[in-house]
């Protein structure tokens, strides 16, 4: 295979003491992952521009700049990144704790059992559901099984926004989006109609990117 004629400009930066070359404009997260340096992340989608930046699990420290979201911040020449900075780690743990505190931990009967990105990440980060938090007053919502292929369980949703992004950008359909604000923000269809009555084509792109069991294929995915 022939070499590409033109190469994109690259920059050199340091991540956790390792010298890394990355394409100009690349986000820190993807540059690190390409070098085998792990940074927790849930909402990040490489092609998303501007990035979603919602989960706050990929925070790292940049010398002279402080804490940044690595999925949002682009690499720069000479940049020095620490993924294990004390503040960044504490903030990532805080974000994970908050998500766990708001998530129904019914993993035993969960359709995503054994392949839940969210659970695996919490184990990797060694974060457990915090005991000293006040319980979030989450009301249980009905599970929507009206669609022939997809089951939507709003109770499991961690509001990362990946499904909305892929549906809009890759599929071009917008059967669902977030409504309400603050703690009440939730994913739903237009006018709260059942998913089966929406424009959803059932392509399943959203299920592929859902890190929890909010969107699953029927019959065990």
């Amino acid at each position: 295979m022939a070499e590409p004629v033109t190469e994109k400009a690259t920059v050199e930066l340091t991540i956790d003491g390792k010298r890394v070359r990355a394409e100009q404009g690349e986000k820190i997260l993807w540059a690190a992952l390409a070098e085998g340096i792990a940074i927790p992340h849930l909402c990040a989608i490489k092609e998303a521009e501007p990035p979603l930046g919602t989960c706050r699990l990929c925070l790292v420290e940049v010398e002279g700049q402080g804490v940044v979201a690595s999925c949002v911040e682009s690499v720069r020449e000479g940049m020095v990144v620490h993924t294990d900075g004390e503040r960044a780690v504490a903030l990532r743990r805080r974000a994970m704790e908050l998500l766990l505190a708001d998530h129904p931990l019914e993993c035993k009967d969960c359709p995503k059992k054994g392949k839940c990105d969210f659970l695996q990440l919490s184990i990797a980060m060694k974060v457990k559901r915090p005991k000293n938090y006040r319980p979030f007053p989450r009301e249980e919502l009905p599970v929507d099984a009206s669609h022939p292929r997809i089951i939507f369980d709003p109770n499991k949703c961690i509001r990362c926004g990946r499904c909305v992004w892929v549906c809009k950008e890759r599929v071009g359909e917008v059967p669902f989006d977030f409504i309400q604000k603050g703690y009440e923000m939730r994913l739903t269809t237009f006018m709260d109609k059942p998913l089966g009555e929406s424009d959803c084509t059932g392509c399943g792109e959203c299920v592929e990117v859902c890190p929890v069991a909010a969107l699953c294929f029927k019959e065990g995915g």
Binding site: G53, T54, R56, A95, L98, P137, G161, Q180, K181, Y183
Partner: peptide, 25 residues
Amino acid sequence: LARECCGKCTMGRLGVKQMLLILAD
């Protein structure tokens, strides 16, 4: 602020609400 934050990110949606729950106690 808990009611008026947009809800997009974890810290704003859940963090501010958790502060409110503690203060309400």
